[in-house]
């Protein structure tokens, strides 16, 4: 996504979230159970531990057009 698109109000970023199954993935589940709304721009990939996240995955996400990456665990 380019900066020009960033000025467009309709533009929605694409955020890839790597979430640990035992904490932040469960936290995202809890947000769901609690019906806490948040923007649909984030898409979560489940990992068994934040220690599993190889920097290569983060780079790949950016290479394929992600605007942000959330690493959480």
């Amino acid at each position: 996504m380019s900066i020009i698109q960033g000025k467009n109000k309709q533009w929605q970023p694409l955020i890839v979230g790597f979430c640990c199954n035992w904490c932040s993935y469960a936290g995202a589940d809890l947000a769901g159970v609690s019906r806490m709304p948040y923007p649909p721009s984030i898409r979560i990939i489940r990992v068994p531990c934040s220690g599993r996240i190889n920097p290569q995955f983060v780079i790949r996400a950016f290479q394929r057009g992600a605007d942000g990456v959330l690493v959480s665990g």
Binding site: A28, D29, A31, G32, V33, R35, M36, P37, Y38, P40, I44, R46
Partner: peptide
Amino acid sequence: ANIREHCSWVHASD
């Protein structure tokens, strides 16, 4: 694919 907790429940307005 978690389309309830991570989707329908949190994006119900859109």
